[in-house]
Write a protein that binds this DNA or RNA. Structure first.
Lengths: 188, 188
DNA sequence: CAATTATTATACCGATTGGTATAATAGAAC
DNA sequence: GTTCTATTATACCAATCGGTATAATAATTG
């Protein structure tokens, strides 16, 4: 048995369903059928466990996202690729994404917030950069790159949140709808 | 000094900035300069304190919201009124709204989630009802009232979340933008 | 003033929090 | 067979968790 992977797996389930603060280290150990020193041997601290969880779980998606933001001269196509990458990740890893969403809206002073804050900063920087390059073709966008990026990511997360609560499915049609809807806000 | 009101005030600040789970009852008492039996005399439990906080803080807004959903025959006007009510509430009570947002995305098994779940259900029911009446005039909407309501509220909360993090200001123009943006998703 | 009521302070409850010191055990290399 | 290293188990730490029993105090009423 791979204890490390098992700890990560059980911790993710517990954190996602009950919250980072509400789950104690002891409970994680009991669920994974190991003891506390074992957990601390692998991760050093509860926060270290959380960091491993988030970073290793998002690594593939982050490189995937990086490749979608290269501006191609066709902004709608870029937007569509970004939305598709987010939706795909949320579909593949719904439990992890639920945890990320909860932490994103948790108070900044919360220990677990710091872990995902860096992640979201990277995401935002990527999307900001995409809009910055697009504003070479669309001059009226210049100066609003940051607001656009935040609104765009916010809308994506709204759709994902609804999907996680079974209000809708993240099918192809929703991708187009999201892009169109957002684009309308820009070109208005 | 009104101890009850003071406890509510201090608890709101602590919960909003550090999270419901992360704040202990003792800390609330210390901040409000009272003792634990006093707090339990007024609110019975930590959850009871939370309920009083949310219910009393949202009472005015909820009745306000109820008056905006009476369908007037002009859907865009209705949508605008609803958005305006939400934005107004979030502007008047940013700390409370930050707390509500965090709890809305917290795991359902979390104690504090239950407190706001009822509130959000009421909000959703109101908006669903509005869309249901509007679908008498707009037949192509029928059957999607619940999805529309969730998307609409989700978009509103996205804008409020961005405003709370200083990405934008909830001015009049944003209300129109939100309504237009959402409407475009419907009539597409 | 005496009696009643509302509110408060002190001290405590068992359980749990994140984290660790120490030593026993398992496996591999020589 | 012995030594070395990686991993594990037992037991513990002070601090805090939500909640409460008991009794002193303050304000109100008769």
């Amino acid at each position: 048995m791979d204890n490390r992977a098992n700890i990560l797996h059980q911790a993710l389930k517990l954190f996602a369903t009950r919250g980072y603060d509400a789950v104690g280290v002891q409970e994680i150990c009991d669920t994974a059928e190991i003891t506390k020193p074992t957990l601390y041997h692998y991760f050093g601290s509860k926060r270290g466990l959380m960091e491993a969880l988030v970073n290793e779980g998002c690594a593939v998606f982050m490189t995937e996202l990086a490749s979608t933001i290269a501006y191609s001269g066709d902004l709608p196509l870029n937007l569509q690729k970004v939305v598709s990458a987010f939706f795909g990740f949320a579909t593949r890893e719904p439990t992890l994404y639920r945890l990320l969403l909860a932490l994103w809206f948790s108070p900044p002073s919360n220990e677990a917030f710091g872990v995902v804050a860096a992640l979201h900063e990277k995401q935002e920087k990527m999307v900001v950069e995409m809009f910055a390059r697009a504003s070479d073709d669309h001059g009226n966008m210049r100066g609003r790159e940051r607001a656009y990026a935040a609104t765009f990511i916010g809308m994506i997360n709204t759709y994902i949140g609804l999907a996680l609560n079974n209000y809708l499915e993240l099918k192809e049609a929703i991708i187009y709808q999201a892009v169109k809807q957002f684009s309308y806000g820009i070109y208005s």
